[in-house]
Amino acid sequence: MRKYIIRRLLLIIPVLLGISIIIFSLIHAMPGDPFAHLIDPNMTPEDKDRMLEAVGYFDPLPVQYLRWVAGAVQGEFGHSIRFKEDVLKVMWPRIQNTFVLSLSAMIFSTLLAIPLGIISATKQYSVFDYIATVAAFIGLSIPVFFFGLMLIKFVAFDLGLFPIAGMQTVASGYTGWQLLVDKARHLVLPTLVLGLASTASLMRYTRSSMLECVKQDYIRTARAKGLSERVVIYKHALRNALIPVITILSMQIPRLISGALLTETIFVWPGLARLSFQAVMNRDYPMIMGTVTVMSIVVMLSNLFADLMYAVLDPRIRYQ
């Protein structure tokens, strides 16, 4: 097991290198110059070239890439061209914001999806099952940003139930308890939007996993020895049905983090995905590399986590 974890962790390195090489070449192929708006228009072209030369702008790409890698392994992602600050320093609060939003979306979808999936499966082909199935399809088919815009229009504007955008009321002077409530109110709509698709797919998986489990022989045995339906479903079937569900749950993590771009854009949520989007718009090379690296590491770690959970929960699985 330990060997397996180490091997998987080592495997992250070549993949990460591959990703960074591809992104590095791609962003340097983009038209436009990140320094264009920073340079004093009165400067002569010669002076400009000299300054760019000093920051290594004209070095061959492999040299620039190696310089980036050398910094990155020491936790130095360079200076953001746009924010004129250390990339990590700019990213850190955004990472926290993204974490808050995705965690809340994940809790929301898990709490909603798993019970619904179980009920759907135990009452297969009932009216409830039918409605839940159609609802899941609707959740998977509605464009995220369209759903978000509808909520903003009908719930935030017309009914005035929740704030329209942002993370907290600007210049409200709230403290303590009030501040917490204010932040929670800002979190509700983005959570709904971000959690929608996950809820739908998680529900479908719980349902089919549960149906698969109920067919097994040991469930028949449990029923045959006279256990109540409650115990059979919640103690015997559910435990085994949840194993694949947990894998699916950890597979949602990447989607919640990098797929949050549209949600973050609509609700003006200052998260990591929006930061990387802005970085691309501004040709902020160090910032693009930084955000993409962080996102890829999170994705790979959550994949590893999914596989490990699988082994921990299901003793039949052995990794070598």
């Binding site: 791609l26 192929a29 038209p31 990098s258 797929g259 771009l261 995905a273 989007f277 996102m295 890829s296």
Partner: peptide
């Protein structure tokens, strides 16, 4: 593995702007 780890929209936007 590499392509699966790409943050989809960021890469798509980079390629689209190239």
């Amino acid at each position: 593995d590499i392509v699966m780890c790409f943050p989809f929209f960021v890469i798509a936007i980079v390629i689209a702007s190239i």
